[in-house]
Amino acid sequence: MGIRFILMVNKQGQTRLAQYYEYLTLEERRALEGEIVRKCLARNEQQCSFVEHRNYKIVYRRYASLFFLVGVDNEENELAILEFIHLLVETMDRHFGNVCELDIMFHLEKAHFMLEEMVMNGCIVETSKSNILAPIQLMDKSS
């Protein structure tokens, strides 16, 4: 299992989406998120997109005011995760049309459904944007 958690965090360091693929207690999550956010947000554009923290490697990428942070284990291909973040953002873009922080906040459950179609138990399920979005759009239409 490669991906341990996915976080979306705004510039102020507030969590906007958190999906964990391993069990952490609420307190552990809060502490972990705080530490990671402090570490990653302090870095500049030129520095690399990988930060080692505890036993995780955080691969992160910034899109406008939103940071996408993916925690992986040591075996994972960091560059591929970077590409995966981009795929995630493109998928959300296609659905929301230029996705922004508010889209994710007010449609938290949809963002989660999309993520469900892409990652399950820390593994990648699907890499085609239309395959990912098909079930979600179908649901939207039917309701």
């Binding site: 870095r43 030129q46 520095q47 690399c48 990988f50 930060v51 080692e52």
Partner: peptide, 8 residues
């Protein structure tokens, strides 16, 4: 390097 991750 100036980047902490790379240095480490």
């Amino acid at each position: 390097d100036s980047d902490a991750s790379i240095r480490k």
